[in-house]
């Protein structure tokens, strides 16, 4: 029974990673860049939600929506100001810029909100679902987290496969030049991608802080790196890959914390990544282009 409980906790943590990883992987798929500031955009979302809940006493739903709006705008603005001018630059310049944006956001947050940690309020309460005569307890928060992750995944998949904008995104991810020839405005597609990726990062932020309620300007960096790992794990650029990678990463982390060592859990997570990449360099669900010329 303990194992089942660990597994569910792992899925819950993995759900948070998966939501962040979805943003990472979408941006990579369309803009072909690693937005290392993604975790810090999430951090800003956490602070916006914190102030909305704590200082303004707004309802949870309103706070979450505000937080999502804030990160959406932030993502689009960052893309416009920092990444768009580098559209023709080498990927190394873009990567360094992304790291710069990450530090800018962390330090900006420190300046604005100080580096002392804050305690995120409880948003769902302490209730839990009791199964097997109370032997297995699953908190409502855990259930909500997993549900939100699945919902985000389903919505994104439908959006990308069924809508016109989604089709344009698919075209852009394959060949921006050819997409332009079709009349697709590549710049606005990239903006939309950043908007969606950053918007859902706020969801991850609220869920993460509800589970681990300490708030600090660096709170985005570790989950950001883990989510990046999850995206690579699943196959960067692949949406189901990010989902699967996130969930697996969360489960591996929690299980190794429970059964091996708390200190070693991160090392184990990254070791698994290295092994997977050695065996399958494109990640679990990475695309292997079978192009015929």
């Amino acid at each position: 029974m303990a194992f089942l409980s660990y597994l569910i906790n792992g899925l819950s943590l993995g759900s948070v990673y998966a939501i962040i990883a979805l943003g990472y992987t979408m941006v990579y798929g369309i803009a072909k860049m690693l937005n290392f500031a993604h975790g810090d955009i999430m951090m800003v979302g956490a602070f916006v939600a914190f102030f909305a809940l704590n200082s303004f006493g707004l309802p949870v739903i309103v706070s979450v929506v505000l937080s999502m709006l804030a990160t959406t705008v932030l993502g689009v603005v960052i893309e416009r100001l920092a990444y768009k001018p580098l559209r023709q630059a080498t990927s190394l310049s873009v990567l360094i810029t992304a790291i710069g944006v990450s530090y800018f956001l962390q330090n900006g947050a420190q300046l604005l909100w100080s580096s002392s940690t804050k305690v995120f309020p409880s948003i769902i309460g302490n209730g839990s679902l009791k199964l097997f005569g109370g032997q297995l307890q699953i908190s409502y928060l855990t259930l909500v987290t997993i549900f939100v992750c699945v919902a985000v995944m389903v919505c994104l998949t439908l959006f990308i496969n069924k809508t016109k904008t989604g089709m344009a995104m698919r075209a852009c991810s394959e060949d921006k030049g050819a997409a332009t020839l079709m009349g697709i405005n590549v710049n606005s597609i990239i903006s939309i991608t950043f908007a969606i990726g950053s918007g859902i990062a706020a969801l991850a932020a609220v869920l993460l802080c509800a589970t681990y309620p300490t708030l600090s300007p660096t709170l985005g960096s570790m989950p950001g790196i883990k989510a990046f790992t999850a995206a690579v794990f699943g196959g960067i650029g692949s949406i189901p890959g990010a989902f699967l990678g996130g969930l697996l990463l969360g489960v591996i982390e929690i299980l190794s914390k429970a059964y091996v060592s708390t200190q070693l859990s991160d090392a184990i997570v990254f070791a698994v990544l290295i092994i997977v990449l050695l065996i399958k360099p494109t990640g679990l669900l990475g695309k292997k282009l079978s192009e015929k010329v």
Partner: peptide, 26 residues
């Protein structure tokens, strides 16, 4: 003005019909 680019540049991961639909995107 439509262009058939050098090397075709069809969208390899899309079906034939989706490629044609993309041609009429606008």
């Amino acid at each position: 003005l439509a262009q058939v680019p050098e090397g075709r540049r069809v969208f390899a991961q899309e079906t034939v019909e989706e490629n044609l639909t993309l041609g009429a995107f606008f």
